[in-house]
Amino acid sequence: MAGASATAVPSPVDAGAQAAPSLWVAARRRFLRSATGMLGATLLVLFGLMAIFAGQVSPYDPIHQDFRIEREAPSATHLMGTDEFGRDVFSRVVWGARVSLQAGGVAASIALVAGLFLGMTAAYYRGRTDGLVMRSMDVLLSFPYLLLAIGIVAILGRGLLTAMIAIGIVYIPNYARVVRGAVLSVGARDFVEAARATGARDRRVMWQHVLPNVLAPIIVQATLNVGTAIIDTAGLSFLGLGTQPPTPDWGNMLSAGRSYIIDSPWIATFPGLAILATVLAFNLVGDALRDALDPRLL
């Protein structure tokens, strides 16, 4: 995607070990040269601004009901039409961005923090710790992710917070595996040995020497994961297990739109398009970051 030659640029691990700034500068240059990556980043900035300034962007109150205008088709007054309660679909999509982006971000962050800790612990201490952590991850991976999330919501109760926690837990093994693999490849390198030889404690070696050198795959994984977390938390809301009405969430808007799909398809069409555009943007950025941070994949 980016135009750099695979042979001219060292691998991120090597580069990170020898001259950390050059990796990030080179990666940024490669990312800025990627048209698809920039398209994704632009879309994300737009969605982010829309979520932050939802109050200014949305023309109507997203939860104000007006039965005189229920299920009106898209028009100049209501760009995306109105829903079964006469609420403006565009305003709900705009406010839904705030909920959905937050849900995806929080779920992916929960997974990132837990996965980072577990993956680093497993790889650094190896032996029994590694076996125990990674077999536990295998157990989590055995569950179809949505069924596991449903099971967690069943125990913790419905709602946005539990949906985010559930999806976060489901994603932990992905991070743990990526982090473990990256730490194993870095952990045996000379600079880590040198840090140990200076008497640095395990925690210091892990966070100050190993972590900065395994960030590249983690950043890529996290970017791609926010997109899938948005889809999956929306999925839980679609099933009635996540965000509860009347709070606008792209998932519960789709769920409501399902009953009116024949006569009023716009109620479900626009929130779905919003999910598609957002997740596509995260995927474009994630793919471009992968290419930028790992020239070997070019």
């Binding site: 789709l254 479900a268 929130p271 997740v279 995927n283």
Partner: peptide, 16 residues
């Protein structure tokens, strides 16, 4: 695009 679409939305669009 395929991996970016929620299945429940694809289903609704196909139904429509």
């Amino acid at each position: 695009v395929g991996i970016s679409m929620p299945v429940f939305w694809i289903g609704l669009m196909l139904i429509y």
